[in-house]
Write a protein that binds this DNA or RNA. Structure first.
Length: 1131
RNA sequence: GGGCUUGUAGCUCAGGUGGUUAGAGCGCUACACUGAUAAUGUAGAGGUCCGUGGUUCGAGUCCACGCAGGCCCA
C-alpha cells in the first residue's frame, strides 16, 4: 500500500469528504449495529427548540455530548442516541403572535384556537433543516431520522401516562400560587403582561410599621431579659389591608438586629422594639440616643425627639422561632403560626428589616411560609372551599368584621361608591381601608409609624386599576412530598462539576416547593384531567384508549347536550382514522360522565413545557405503550449534558419525574456546561453583533479544529471566551504538527515501501532506546486519556494528546529519528531492522493518536486512521489497550535528563556564540551517584548528536574538581524542626565543605545541637573552572569549548554540507536524487577540509563524486562566512 | 438581596494533600536552524498570583471579610 501525501491540508475539506464517506457507507449506523448484543451506554438528548437558529454554543454543547458517546462506542458499548425536538411553549407562541401581528387577546376572536395551534405546529419546526445541517457539519452523531417530537400524539400520550401515575400516587393536586391578579378584570396577569410599558406607576400608599407583641417563650427569653418588659417586633408594609392575613414575620439570617428601649410615638407608652440596626436612622433621630427617658415620660407636651437606647444587638438567626401574638385576630389559622422565620429575600433597604408575611398575598410570603410550615390565613366559602380574606372582587370577606365586604383598595371604588361609604363612615372624607386600619392600630398601641409612601406599583393594562398579588388556582405536583427521595437519589449522581450537583442543584432541592404545572396557554400538552362543575369528582386520563372509552360512555349516557355530543363525536371520528389530536381545542370539546352521572369538563390548563422534556426518557419511546424492551435497556441514562442554566430546568424535571415514577435517577452522570462568550467575555447576542455564525466558522476552519479548540481551551463547565484566533492557533500548532508528522512518515514509508499490513506490529527486540521511550510515553498517554474520557474530563484528554504529539512525538522523537529514515536504502534490498523499528514505532504512535483523538476530532481522526491503516473507520475500532511491558519509568527519566542536558548545552552554545554545526570535543556532567550516571549513559548517544559533541564525560567526587553546594529541603525540615526551621536552614546554607563531607559519610551531622539528616538537604554541584557551565534544577553541565584544528575542519565540512543541501533544495531536486558536485579551486583550507570529510559529505548530500576544477562556468556563488566558494551541482 | 462560580504574564490557561526561585502555549524582541520548512530551536522582556486581615517556621494553595465578572433565582 502507499500512504497519501498532502500539501496544504484543508480541514474543512477533510470534514466534507469524511462526511460523505460516512453517509454513503452508513458508518454511524454501523457503529451501533456492530455493537449489537454488547452492553449499552445510554445517552439522553436534551431537545433543542427548533424555532430558533442554532448558535456557536450549540456546537460546544453538542461536541461534549458527542465525545463521550463516541468514546463509549470505542470502548465496545452500544450507544443509541435518539434526537429530539422541544416543540411546545411560550417562545413558539410569541413567535407566532409576532408573525401574525396578534396578541393573546385575539385568540378565540380573530383567530380560532385551532388555527392558532396549526400555525404553532408549522412554525416550530421551521429551522429543522438548519439544525440538521449543523448537526452533520459539526460531526455530531445523533439519530435524526427518527427523533422524538414533543407535540406528537404518541409523545403526549406517554406524558399523560406519567401524569396519571403521579395522580394515582396522590402527587397531583389543585392548589394555588400567588400571581398578579386584576380584580376589576377578574383575571390573572402574566409577568409578560406586567412588564409592558406603563404598567408600573408611581402611587401614594399608606405605609404602616406595626408592632407585633412578642410572647415570652424559651426562644425569646434573651429579649425579655434585656428589656425587662414587653417586647415588640417592628414590621413594615405598604399594604395594611394584608395585616389581618399576617401569619409570620420574616427576618434575614445574617442581618444585624437591635432591641431598642423607647416610647410609642402615638400612645407614648414605653416600649421595647426590634428592628434592623441599619434602619434605626429611619425611625429615630441620632441625637435622641440615650436621651432622658424620665423627662420624656414626665413631660405633658411631648418633645419632638423620642429618646431611645440600644439594649442588645443580635443576628436574625437568633430570633428564628420567636413567637408573637396575632396582630388583627379576625380569623384563626388551622395550624401554629405567628413566629419569626428566615427568608433570603429580606433586605435593609426600607422598612425595618423584618417583613410582614401574608402567605395569601405575596409570592415570597407564600413560598417562605410553605417552606417553614406556616399555614395561610383562610376561611371557608359556601362550598366549603378555602378562600383568602379578600374575595375575587377585591373585597374583604365577611369574617373580617370591621371591614366586611369593603374594597381593599380605594382605587376600586367609583366616586359614587365613595360617597356612600363616606356617609356610612360618618366623616367628611372617605377613608380607605388602609387608612382606617392605621388609625385602629395606632389607638391599640400596635402601630409604631404611619406615613404616606410613594412607590411604583403594577397596574392592570386593561382596567388601569392596581393589581393584587392573589392566590389563583393551579395544578401542582407535590414534589415536597418526595423531597427526601430527590435529595438521596441526587447523591448517587456524578455531577461535573461537582459543585453544580451539591451546590446549585442540591440547594435547590433543599428549598423545594411544589411544582406548579399549570400554564394558561394554547400550544402545549393539555392537562388530562376532567372535573365535575362542583369539583367533587374528577378523573385523570392516562392513555388515549382510556379517554376514548370514557368518551363513548359519556355519549351512551344520554346526558350530554347537542354541542357536547358534537365535540365527542368529532374526536371519536378523528381517532377512528388514527388522527386523534390531543391538543386544544379538540380535547376541550370532550365531555365525560362521572360515576355519579355528572358531566365532567376538562381543566383548562396546559402543563409546563418542562414536564414535556423531563418526560423524554419515557415518551421518546412511547413507553409504556410501545418499545418496552428498548426502554428497559436504555433507562436510566449513563450520561447527559446540557448548559448549567438547565439545572433547574431539564436536569430537575428529568430527576423529579424519574424519582417519582420509577424511584430511580434519570441519569447517572451529568456534565453541565458553561456559557460561550465572545472573546472579551461578553455574552454573545445577535443584537450586539458579536455572535459567531457556526456555519461560517465550520466552513472556514473545519469542524475538527473548532471542536478541538473548544474542548482544550477551557474546561466544559467554565465559560469559554470564544476567539477565532484560538482556532487558528490550534489548527497550526496541533493539527499542523500532526499532519506534518504524518506527511513525514508517509513520504519515507512510501519511498521504502513500508507496509503496516505486513510489518504493522512492533518487534520489540529491534527497538532503540528512543523508540522504547516514545512508546513508553504513548502507553502513559493511553492510560491517561482513557481515564480522562471515562471521568468525563475531555479537556484533560485533549491537552494530554496535544502535548504528546507536539512535544514528545514530533519535537523529540521525529526530530531525533530523522536520520534513520533518511538512510538511503532501496526497497529491493529489504529494510533494515532498525528502519523497520522506526517505522513501526512512528506508525504505532500515529494510529493510537488517530484513535484517541477521534471522539473530539471525529473527521480528522477518521482521516488519519484511514490514511494509515486503510481500515474502514476509526469509529468502528476498539480502544487501544495499554501494553504494560512497554512502560519504562526509568527510561522516561533518562530521556528527561537528556532533554534537560541538551537544553543546557544549547543555551551555552547560544550565549557563547558557538554554532551547533561546529563540533565540540566534550561535555562534562557531574554526577553524584552511579544511578544518574547510568541513566545518562543510556541516552548519551542522542545527546552527542543533538548538541554535536564528541564525548559525554562524567565527573564524580573522585575527580576532585567538583565543588558542591548544599541547600535546605524545606519540605523535610518543616515537620521536624517547626519553629526552629529558619535557624536550621541558615545553618545548612552556611555548611562548609568539611561538614558536608561528614554528612555524606555518616548520613547525619549535628550542628548547634540540631541533628541534620541527609534527606533533609539537597546537594548539588556548582561551577567548574575552565569550562562553560550552566545549571538548572540541580543538574549542571560543563561544555568544553576548546577548538582543535580537526574540529574546525569538521565544522567547515558541516557548513559545506549545509550549503549543498540548500542548493539541492533551491534546484528543486528530489530527496532521492543523487548528485555530482564540482567546486572551483579557491581557498586551500576549505579544500583541505572538504577533501578530508569527502565521504561524510558525500553521504550527507548523496553525492556520487566531488571534484575540483580551475575554471567553472555557471557555478553558484556560495557564501561561507569569510570566503565564497563557487559550486555547481548536477544530477 | 440569596445560591453557585471565576479571578495567576499582554491573551488563553496549568499549578495533588501548604515548602521558600509560580509554569506552558500564543503574542512580542533578538539570535540560530533549514531534506518535516506557512515548521523548528535557544535566549530575553513580561507577575501586587483580585484586595485586606488571619492561621503557620512557611500561603498562589487553608480560613474570614471584602472587590470585580458570570450564571441561576428573587
Amino acid at each position: 500500500m502507499s500512504f497519501k501525501e498532502y500539501k496544504n491540508l484543508d480541514y474543512a475539506q477533510v470534514a466534507d469528504e469524511i462526511l460523505s464517506f460516512w453517509k454513503s457507507n452508513e458508518i454511524f449506523e454501523k457503529s451501533i449495529t456492530s455493537r449489537e448484543g454488547h452492553p449499552t451506554f445510554t445517552f439522553f438528548e436534551g431537545p433543542p427548540s427548533a424555532n430558533g437558529t442554532p448558535g456557536i454554543h450549540h456546537v460546544m454543547a453538542r461536541t461534549i455530548k458527542d465525545i463521550f458517546c463516541r468514546y463509549q462506542t470505542l470502548k465496545g458499548k452500544q450507544v443509541k442516541r435518539k434526537g429530539g425536538w422541544d416543540t411546545h411553549g411560550l417562545p413558539v407562541e410569541l413567535q407566532v403572535e409576532k408573525e401574525l401581528g396578534i396578541t393573546k387577546e385575539d385568540i378565540g376572536k380573530s383567530i380560532s384556537v385551532e388555527e392558532y395551534n396549526q400555525k404553532c405546529r408549522e412554525t416550530v419546526m421551521k429551522f429543522t433543516d438548519q439544525w440538521n445541517d449543523l448537526t452533520e457539519k459539526m460531526g455530531y452523531w445523533v439519530d435524526l431520522e427518527d427523533p422524538y417530537v414533543t407535540y406528537h400524539a404518541t409523545y403526549i400520550e406517554s406524558v399523560w401516562n406519567l401524569l396519571k401515575k403521579l395522580y394515582e400516587k396522590g402527587l397531583l393536586y389543585k392548589g394555588y400560587t400567588i400571581q398578579p391578579y386584576s380584580p376589576a378584570a377578574g383575571t390573572g396577569l402574566s409577568s409578560h403582561e406586567l412588564n409592558q410599558p406603563g404598567c408600573y406607576r408611581d402611587v401614594k400608599d399608606t405605609s404602616l410599621t406595626a408592632q407585633f407583641k412578642v410572647k415570652n417563650t424559651e426562644k425569646s427569653t434573651f429579649l425579655f431579659d434585656a428589656a425587662g418588659s414587653e417586647v415588640y417586633i417592628l414590621a413594615w408594609t405598604t399594604t395594611p389591608w394584608t395585616l389581618p392575613s399576617n401569619a409570620a414575620l420574616t427576618a434575614g439570617k445574617n442581618i444585624e438586629y437591635v432591641l431598642i428601649k423607647t416610647f410609642n410615638p402615638y400612645t407614648f407608652l414605653p416600649v421595647n422594639v426590634v428592628l434592623a440596626k441599619d434602619l434605626i436612622k429611619n425611625y429615630f433621630k441620632a441625637e435622641a440616643e440615650n436621651g432622658d427617658f424620665d423627662a420624656f415620660a414626665a413631660a405633658d407636651k411631648k418633645p419632638q425627639a423620642i429618646p431611645y437606647q440600644i439594649l442588645k444587638t443580635f443576628k436574625g438567626s437568633e430570633i428564628e422561632g420567636v413567637e408573637y401574638e396575632q396582630l388583627m385576630a379576625y380569623v384563626q389559622p388551622e395550624a401554629p403560626a405567628f413566629r419569626v422565620i428566615l427568608g433570603d429575600f429580606v433586605t435593609t433597604e426600607d422598612g425595618t428589616g423584618i417583613v410582614h408575611t401574608a402567605p395569601t398575598f405575596g409570592a415570597d410570603d407564600f413560598r417562605v411560609a410553605q417552606q417553614n410550615g406556616i399555614p395561610a390565613i383562610v376561611v371557608k366559602d359556601e362550598n366549603g372551599k378555602e378562600v383568602p380574606l379578600v374575595n375575587r372582587q377585591g373585597k374583604f370577606v365577611k369574617e373580617v368584621t370591621d371591614y366586611a365586604l369593603e374594597f381593599v383598595k380605594e382605587a376600586y371604588l367609583s366616586e359614587e361608591e365613595k360617597e356612600i361609604e363616606k356617609a356610612k363612615q360618618g366623616r367628611d372624607k372617605y377613608l380607605s381601608v388602609d387608612e382606617r386600619i392605621a388609625i385602629q392600630l395606632k389607638t391599640e398601641n400596635k402601630a409604631f409609624n404611619v406615613q404616606k409612601f410613594d412607590h411604583p406599583y403594577p397596574h392592570c393594562w386593561r382596567t388601569d386599576k392596581p393589581v393584587l398579588y392573589y392566590p389563583l388556582d393551579s395544578w401542582f405536583i407535590k414534589t415536597t412530598a418526595v423531597k427526601d427521595k430527590l435529595i438521596a437519589l441526587n447523591k448517587t449522581i456524578q455531577w461535573k462539576p461537582e459543585s453544580t450537583g451539591t451546590g446549585r442543584f442540591g440547594n435547590w432541592l433543599e428549598n423545594l416547593v411544589d411544582w406548579n404545572l399549570s400554564r394558561s396557554r394554547y400550544w402545549g400538552t393539555p392537562l388530562p384531567i376532567w372535573r365535575t362543575e362542583d369539583e367533587s369528582e374528577e378523573v385523570c386520563m392516562g392513555s388515549l384508549a382510556d379517554l376514548l372509552a370514557g368518551l363513548k360512555k359519556a355519549l351512551e349516557s344520554g346526558k350530554l347536550d347537542a354541542g357536547q355530543i358534537k365535540g365527542n363525536e368529532a374526536f371519536l371520528a378523528a381517532a377512528a382514522k388514527g388522527e386523534a389530536d390531543l391538543h386544544r381545542p379538540y380535547v376541550d370539546d370532550i365531555y365525560l360522565i362521572s360515576p355519579n352521572g355528572q358531566i365532567m369538563s376538562r381543566e383548562a390548563d396546559l402543563i409546563d413545557v418542562w414536564f414535556d422534556s423531563g418526560a423524554m426518557p419515557f415518551a421518546q419511546w412511547h413507553y409504556p405503550f410501545e418499545n418496552q424492551e428498548i426502554f428497559k435497556a436504555n433507562y436510566p441514562a449513563d450520561f447527559i449534558s446540557e448548559g448549567v442554566d438547565q439545572t433547574r430546568g431539564w436536569f430537575f424535571t428529568l430527576h423529579a419525574i424519574s424519582s417519582m415514577v420509577e424511584d430511580s435517577v434519570a441519569f447517572k452522570n451529568v456534565v453541565s456546561t458553561g456559557l460561550v462568550l465572545d472573546k472579551n467575555g461578553n455574552k454573545m447576542s445577535k443584537r450586539l453583533g458579536n455572535a459567531i455564525d457556526p456555519f461560517e466558522t465550520l466552513k472556514k476552519y473545519g469542524a475538527d479544529p473548532t471542536r478541538w479548540y473548544m474542548i482544550t481551551n477551557a474546561q466544559p463547565w467554565d465559560n469559554l471566551k470564544f476567539d477565532l484566533a484560538g482556532i487558528t492557533e490550534v489548527r497550526n500548532k496541533f493539527f499542523g504538527t500532526l499532519t506534518n508528522t504524518y506527511n513525514f512518515f508517509a513520504l519515507y514509508a512510501n519511498l521504502d515501501g513500508f507496509d503496516p499490513k505486513q510489518l504493522g506490529s512492533l518487534n520489540e527486540a529491534n527497538l532503540t532506546e528512543l523508540d522504547r521511550w516514545v512508546l513508553s510515553k504513548l502507553m502513559t498517554l493511553i492510560a491517561e486519556v482513557d481515564e480522562a474520557y471515562a471521568q468525563y474530563e475531555p479537556t484533560k484528554a485533549g491537552r494530554a494528546i496535544q502535548d504528546f504529539v507536539c512535544d514528545h512525538l514530533s519535537n523529540w522523537y521525529v526530530r531525533l529519528s530523522r536520520r534513520r529514515f533518511w538512510n538511503p536504502e532501496s526497497a529491493a534490498n529489504g529494510l533494515s531492522d532498525d528502519k523497520i523499528a522506526a517505522y513501526q514505532t512512528l506508525y504505532t504512535c500515529l494510529e493510537a493518536v488517530a484513535q484517541m483523538m477521534s471522539p473530539i476530532a471525529p473527521f480528522y481522526g477518521e482521516w488519519l486512521y484511514k490514511n494509515l491503516t486503510g481500515k474502514e473507520s476509526v469509529h468502528l475500532s476498539d480502544f487501544i489497550q495499554v501494553n504494560k511491558s512497554l512502560q519504562n519509568e526509568s527510561l522516561e527519566q533518562s530521556m528527561d535528563l537528556a532533554q534537560r542536558i541538551c537544553s543546557l548545552v544549547h543555551s551555552l552554545r547560544k550565549t557563547h556564540k558557538l554554532k551547533v554545526r561546529q563540533p565540540l570535543a566534550q561535555i562534562l556532567v557531574p554526577v553524584l551517584n552511579e544511578q544518574t550516571r547510568e541513566q545518562i549513559r543510556r541516552v548519551d548517544g542522542l545527546i552527542k548528536t543533538e548538541v554535536n559533541v564528541k564525548e559525554v564525560n562524567y565527573l564524580d567526587d573522585a575527580s576532585g574538581v567538583l565543588s558542591k553546594k548544599v541547600k535546605p529541603n524545606f519540605k523535610a525540615l518543616g515537620p521536624k524542626f517547626g519553629k526552629d526551621m529558619k535557624q536550621v536552614a541558615d545553618l545548612i546554607s552556611q555548611m562548609n565543605a568539611e561538614t558536608l563531607a561528614n554528612l555524606e559519610a555518616n548520613s547525619v551531622v549535628t550542628m548547634n545541637g540540631f541533628e541534620i539528616g541527609l534527606a533533609e538537604v539537597e546537594i548539588m554541584t556548582e561551577d567548574m573552572p575552565g569550562y562553560l557551565t550552566a545549571s538548572e534544577g540541580g543538574l549542571t553541565i560543563a561544555l568544553d569549548n576548546k577548538l582543535t584544528p580537526e574540529l574546525v575542519r569538521e565544522g567547515m565540512a558541516r557548513e559545506f554540507v549545509n550549503r549543498i543541501q540548500n542548493l539541492r533544495k533551491d534546484s528543486g531536486f528530489e530527496v532521492t536524487d543523487k548528485i555530482y558536485i564540482t567546486i572551483q579551486e579557491g581557498p586551500l583550507d576549505w579544500k583541505e577540509s572538504i577533501n578530508e570529510f569527502k565521504s561524510y559529505i558525500s553521504q550527507e548530500v548523496q553525492a556520487l563524486d566531488i571534484e575540483w576544477k580551475n575554471q567553472l562556468e555557471g557555478a553558484t556563488e556560495v557564501n561561507m562566512e569569510d570566503v565564497n566558494l563557487f559550486v555547481q551541482i548536477r544530477k
